[in-house]
Amino acid sequence: MNDKNIDSILKKYPVGKSENLIFILQEVQDLIGYISIESVEKISKYLSLPTVKIYGVATFYDEFRFNTNVKYTVKVCEGTSCHLNKSSELIEEIKYQLSLINGSKEEEQIFCLQIVPCMCACDKGPVFTIENEYYTFASPEIVKPALDKFIEKNGI
């Protein structure tokens, strides 16, 4: 199903020009939500790059995901201000709560956690978001209710 879509992305770029690799990967991820093995093989043929090179580039950057199931992103700020306001405890708690929801198998994860350097809300730290919902002055205690609310709302 995805094959045609990936072809349509590739068509926008000239054949064999590896300088567009990152932008192709970005478009693939925007389209199907992650970097799949098939898409890497297709890109490899199109740009005449070995797949190992493509994985080398993709794994270097924070943005790219290889996990098939992830639908929702939890972002938490680890800027210096948030860190001073004990964001590390918050991160521990979010990791723990997400591990309970996601289970142990990596391929079954629905939520993924992104730790970002600054969300521009240094006076309201620690801050975290579940998709587009913002939580400011967040203490570890509010993580579970927030996640429960989100799960209920989205019927997961």
């Binding site: 680890e78 800027g79 201000s81 860190h83 350097p117 600054c118 521009c120 240094c122």
Partner: peptide
């Protein structure tokens, strides 16, 4: 801009 705790450019 991706320093933790800097957001001048974004403004």
């Amino acid at each position: 801009e991706s320093d933790p705790g800097a957001f001048t450019n974004i403004i």
